[in-house]
Every structure is written in C-alpha cells, then in structure tokens.
C-alpha cells in the first residue's frame, strides 16, 4: 500500500512532463515540417538535418546535454525544465515527420481542385489541406504520445521524481523488492491503454473522412 502510494505520487509529474513536452514539440514541429516541404532547397536540407540530428541522438543523451552540458555552464535549469525541453525538442523531430506524412497523404487533387476554384495557396493550406492532414496525422500523434509517455521515464536519470524515480527509490529504501516495479509497469500500461484505444478508434474513423 505504501509502495502504491509512493509510485502514484509520481503520476502527476509524469503526466506534466509528457503533456508539456508534447505541447512544446507540437508547436516546434510546425516550422520544421514547413521547412521540410519548402520550395527553398537549403531550407529543406536544414529541416532534414535538424530532424535527423534530433532523432539520431538518444533521448537521455539530449537530456544530459541540456541539463549537465548547457545547464552547468550557460543557463541554470531545474531538472524538470530540462526534462521538458529535452523531450519537447525530440518530440518536435518526430512530430515534424508525422505532420509531413499527413500533408503528403492529402491527395494532390485537393490542391488542384482548390486552385481551380480560385483559392490562394495559403487559403488552400489552411482551409483544405491542413484539416485533412490533421485527421490523417492524429492517430500517429496519439501513438507517438504513448511512446513519449514511456520515454518520459528517462527524466528520472536527471533526478525528476516521476513514477519510475519513486519506484526505484521505494524499492531501495523499503526493501520491497519487485513490487514497486510491478506497480510502475502496471501504471504505465494503464495510462497508455486509453490512448491506445483512442488511437485505434481514431484511425478507422478519421481515415474514412479524408479524400484520397
């Protein structure tokens, strides 16, 4: 019971880190995805390099770079701030690719139809393509959110007291052995179950409503 309480105290922290990082990533991903689809070649390349670098370095290395690297010499950051920024940057890399996939899934005919109707480029993007791209991307975003929820465990490595941090602590201090880990694993599975369920449902319904 004590163990359960200790582990559950970490839930709000885990959720805060996950949601904040996802929000940060969702915003940062927009310019990245735009760069990736830009007509300006150097910009396209820059977008690609940034995305590849962000995704090619392990998340925990990013956290260390931000928390120990930048944090020690340049800007002092609280562990949780560093965690959110680090995971946010990584999310931006993954979400940018998801957005890009969504944009290219919208049939080229939609652009043509809109311009035949005399709609401008921005208008078409905002009113026609983006809403459809959003629908196509949403299941992938949900799937990514699940993996981010699990990846958020790594902020324990820089001392953020989220679920795993508390579980490990309780395992060591109380000698409760395996129990805290079982509890932690169960909590993660329970937290991701509704998201997984949502994603499966969304996938079927939203795809049906997008022109191909």
């Amino acid at each position: 019971m004590e163990v359960l309480e200790a582990v559950l105290l970490g839930v709000p922290v885990t959720l805060l880190v996950t949601v904040a990082a996802l929000a940060l990533g969702a915003v940062l991903a927009v310019p990245l995805a735009a760069a990736r689809r830009s007509r300006v070649v150097p910009l396209r390349w820059l977008g690609r390099v940034v995305i590849d670098v962000v995704r090619g370095i392990p998340p925990v290395v990013w956290l260390f770079l931000i928390f120990f690297g930048l944090g020690r010499d340049l800007i002092r950051l609280e562990p949780i701030e560093a965690g959110i920024i680090g995971l946010g940057v990584i999310s931006a890399g993954y979400l940018a690719e998801i957005y890009r996939g969504g944009l290219s899934a919208v049939h080229a005919g939609q652009w043509e139809a809109a311009s035949a109707l005399g709609m401008g480029g921005t208008d078409t993007l905002v009113r026609v393509v983006a809403p459809q791209a959003f629908r196509v991307s949403l299941p992938a975003v949900t799937t990514y959110a699940i993996s981010l929820l699990k990846d958020s465990t790594i902020v324990s490595a820089i001392g953020v007291s989220e679920i795993l941090f508390r579980a490990t602590q309780s395992a060591r201090s109380t000698g409760a052995g395996l129990t805290p880990f079982f509890v932690a694993a169960a909590v993660y599975i329970l937290l991701s179950a509704p998201l997984a369920w949502l994603s499966r449902g969304l996938d079927a319904r939203l795809r049906a409503r997008v022109a191909r």
Partner: peptide, 9 residues
C-alpha cells in the same frame, strides 16, 4: 507497454 528503463531497473 513497460518502458525500457523500467524493465532495466
């Protein structure tokens, strides 16, 4: 469903 880090610990 279990995060890799939880599995390791």
């Amino acid at each position: 469903g279990t995060p890799a880090l939880v599995m390791l610990q």
